[in-house]
């Protein structure tokens, strides 16, 4: 197979996903098929071709470092699953 059971588990953990055992099998098979198709890219001669990272050529977009209005704290916190005293609450990180 193009991508193994363990590789799917490993990559999923990098992406912070827990998968059920059945799902690992399904993803390994489906992603394996997709990667086999992706391998056809090997047939293209790309020697000396500069990779395109964007659809159109862009230069850096700079702006002046001016003071302007930003979202207020209450609005920014309005969708937080848990908040307190103007801060996002997360599970304890350091024991």
């Amino acid at each position: 197979m193009k991508i193994t059971h363990d590789e799917v588990m490993y990559v999923a953990s990098l992406a912070r996903l827990d998968l059920h055992e059945d799902d690992v099998e399904m993803f390994a098979e489906q992603i394996g098929k997709i990667l086999e198709h992706v391998d056809t890219l090997g047939n293209v001669n790309t020697d000396g071709v500069e990779p395109a990272t964007h659809a159109i050529s862009l230069s850096n977009a700079f702006r002046n470092d001016d003071k302007k209005e930003h979202a207020n704290r209450e609005a920014a916190l309005s969708n937080a699953p848990e908040q307190e005293d103007g801060a996002f609450i997360v599970p304890k990180i350091i024991e």
Binding site: E7, L17, I31, V38, L41, V49, P51, A52
Partner: peptide, 25 residues
């Protein structure tokens, strides 16, 4: 998962860089 895999160490050149070159073509 697919996206994380093609960007992961050891696969980046074979997949992402190659695909970006084909995109240029």
């Amino acid at each position: 998962i697919l996206g994380t895999y093609v960007l992961s160490a050891g696969y980046y050149d074979a997949y992402y860089r190659k695909a970006s070159q084909v995109r240029a073509l």
